[in-house]
Design a binder for these strands. Structure first.
Length: 644
RNA sequence: GCCACUUUAGCUCAGCUGGUAGAGCAACUGAUUUGUAAUCAGUAGGUCGUUGGUUCGAUUCCGACAAGUGGCUCCA
């Protein structure tokens, strides 16, 4: 007999060799039907795998993340079975579970999959699922496995085998499909009730663009149709707040073929948002001791040779323009220009920290396939600044930048993000990273300490640092789930020397400053793209391109309407009148859809009382207010940058 | 850049297997002067992304290019 301990601490005795599925059955048949896999001593196992020793056991079902993963990974195998039955001779690479669904990479030879094929595949998968075939686990020696795949001529699985230890190699079979796989899997295919293959994509083998491109099919499955329907509905809803759709609807930005890909045109409404953001940045930076600078959009080649961006990043820059026998480049970053401002006047330790800021316009030649609405563009306006400081000042300066991030996040109600501390990889010193092991350790420790001291949750990611130093990136997700770096805060102990930046220290010696590169509001493009989705187009009053729309009941009240408008405007409020001869219902509907935060309905009653009927977007009628009351509210919301 | 798909009126979309196009909304004109999410009528608007080819004839079939979409790679 063995002792099995459950998550609630209860201990029960079973025969050795009992499976998690047996145990579930002993509790209830209903539970047994729901079990997908089990966590045995912290490892996720097949529910049917015999347990031979005392163990901690957690039964995993659809409501557990690990249970879902098992379900989706098994679904990938089911898809592979369907693909193999349709296209014999197909070779498979890997087919993992994702956060939402699964994919499988495959080599289909010359066969090109179409969307029609997906429909047929879904049908086949449904048939196979109904057969309720068990997933059977089989251990195999490495030699046997190699022989098996050599005979099949499957170079992909042979490649996978190379990195596997003999004794740990397992195969899984369900129906007519057998695959090298570490598992675990669900007991049988029958629980997969709703299947949707979502898209076909090319994916480089092993993620290396020099390798052959395999066919990747993405899909998602559920234990019932209802959840699939809900998932598809959620995707539809998400599309409605896609910044590309909202940007067009609200007149924020536009793209034009004649201007060029990745080059957004900011329309009047978008420009108002840009100006409000810059106002916020300027206020915040002035209070934090930054000075503003302005630099040209182009520079000579030599600047980028000094910075080290050429030739290594030449691919990401627009090709040079030749003028007077010199090559000029559009700037892809502002740092070298700012370094030259630092170097223009001699600095002493009394001038440090020296902080200069600019909403700098940069141009980057992003690959055509990478462009994505406002989130990934070729012309960007960066909330950039550089801080030049001594080693002693670094901690305080870096912390102040971190505090500025958090302050901004509070203003915008940004709560779904991950702070990522990007570190170097010691084995790549001298190649990918500047060869200064001591400086790396020192700065990484300082950056980590800032995060810990400010109680900022973060994750550490090795081998993701900039070549000149560690950094903190703020990761966010677009509505459709794509990940982006919104903001960045970087340490640079390299450019100071490269640009021969110096200051005279207290001991009257020459010293090289540390540099902090920071962009808490990222770029206008990405930040406004993010805000559009974050607010679903319903900007807070201070950011809203139009703040108040006045809706007169009829043109009999135009005189009063114009008076009200003039008063609001002189209070600094962005206001417009809907003077069409439409019914009030129509005006309200369209004002609501345009997401203007406040609407004022003015008619006979308001005119005689000298009041306003106030309506808030999404909330309906707020009742009657005096002009002074209303102006007071709106002006306070603007001044305090109130979110709602 | 690579794989797949898409491109029809300002917007959202329809248009069986080739015979030069249609709806709703928006726009414009007129009527209506309206009380908290769509007043009515009329008018105008498209060389069907561009460009080659096949064909008596191409929005429709094939190719190239451009832009976009979903991924891959990339993101200093």
């Amino acid at each position: 007999m063995i002792n099995v301990t459950f998550p609630d601490g209860a201990v029960r005795q079973y025969e050795a060799g009992v499976s998690a599925l047996d145990i579930a059955k002993s509790i209830s048949e209903g539970l047994a039907r729901k079990v997908l896999s089990a966590k045995v001593n912290g490892q996720v196992w097949d529910a049917s795998r015999p347990i031979s020793e005392d163990a901690n056991l957690q039964l995993l079902t659809w409501t557990d993340t690990d249970g879902k993963s098992t379900f989706w990974h098994s679904s990938a195998h089911l898809m592979a079975e369907a693909v193999e039955s349709m296209f014999p001779g197909v070779k498979f690479w890997v087919g993992p579970a994702l956060d939402n669904g699964f994919y499988y990479d495959m080599d289909l030879g010359d066969k090109k999959l179409t969307e029609d094929d997906l429909v047929v595949l879904e049908k086949k998968m449904n048939e196979l699922a109904k057969q309720n075939n068990a997933y059977q686990r089989k251990e195999m020696s490495k030699a046997e496995a190699i022989a098996y795949f050599t005979e099949k001529g499957d170079e992909y699985k042979l490649d996978l085998l190379q990195n596997l230890q003999d004794g740990s190699i397992t195969f899984y079979t369900q129906g007519n499909f057998t695959d090298l796989c570490r598992g675990p899997h669900i007991p049988a295919t029958g629980v997969i009730k709703a299947i949707k293959l979502t898209n076909i994509a090319g994916a480089y083998w092993k993620g290396d663009e020099k390798n052959k491109q395999l066919t990747r099919v993405y899909g998602i499955t559920f234990p019932n149709q209802k959840e699939l329907d809900e998932y598809l509905l959620m995707l539809e809803e998400a599309k409605k707040r896609d910044h590309r759709k909202l940007g067009k609807e609200l007149g924020i930005f536009t793209m034009d073929e004649d201007i060029g890909p990745g080059l957004p045109l900011w329309m009047p409404n978008g420009t108002i948002i840009i100006e409000e953001l810059e106002k916020l940045a300027k206020e915040t930076e002035e209070a934090a001791g930054y000075k503003r600078v302005v630099t040209p959009h182009i520079a000579k080649e030599n600047l980028y040779i000094t910075s080290g961006h050429l030739p290594y990043y030449a691919d990401s820059m627009f090709p040079p323009m030749e003028m007077d026998g010199e090559k000029y480049y559009l700037k892809a970053m502002n740092c070298p220009h700012h370094h030259k401002i630092f170097a223009a006047e001699h600095k002493s330790y009394r001038d440090l920290p020296y902080r200069i800021a600019e909403y700098g316009t940069c141009y980057r030649y992003e690959q055509s396939g990478e462009l994505f609405g406002l989130m990934r563009v070729r012309c960007l306006h960066m909330n950039d600044a550089h801080i030049y400081c001594s080693k002693e000042q670094f901690f305080q300066e870096f912390k102040a930048v971190n505090d500025m991030y958090l302050k901004y996040f509070k203003i915008f109600g940004v709560d779904k993000y991950v702070m990522r501390l990007s570190l170097h990889a010691p084995e790549k010193l001298g190649q990918k990273y500047v060869d200064e092991p001591a400086l790396w350790k020192e700065t990484e420790d300082m950056v980590r300490k800032v995060l810990i001291d400010t109680n900022t949750p973060f994750i550490e990611v090795p081998d993701e640092a900039a070549f000149y130093g560690p950094k903190i990136d703020v990761q966010i997700w677009s509505t459709i789930g794509r990940e982006f770096t919104l903001a960045t805060n970087q340490v640079d102990f390299n450019s100071g020397r490269k640009f021969k930046l110096e200051y005279t220290n207290k001991e009257n010696q020459t010293d090289v400053p540390l540099i902090i590169h920071r962009a808490p509001l990222g770029t206008h493009e990405r930040f406004i793209g993010f805000l559009l989705e974050h607010y679903a187009g319903k900007f807070p009053v201070w950011l809203s391109p139009l703040q108040v729309k006045i809706l007169p009941i009829s043109d009999k009240f135009m005189e009063y309407t114009n008076e009200v408008k003039a008063e609001l405007r002189s209070a600094g409020i962005r206001v417009e009148i809907d003077d069409r001869s439409e019914k009030i219902g129509r005006k309200i509907r369209e004002a609501e859809l345009s997401r203007v935060p406040y609407m004022l309905v003015l008619g006979e009653k308001e005119m005689t009382e000298g009041k306003l009927s106030v309506r808030r977007q999404g909330k309906g009628d707020l009742g009657s207010q005096t002009i002074a009351e209303f102006i007071g509210t709106v002006v306070a919301e603007i001044k305090n940058r109130t979110e709602e």
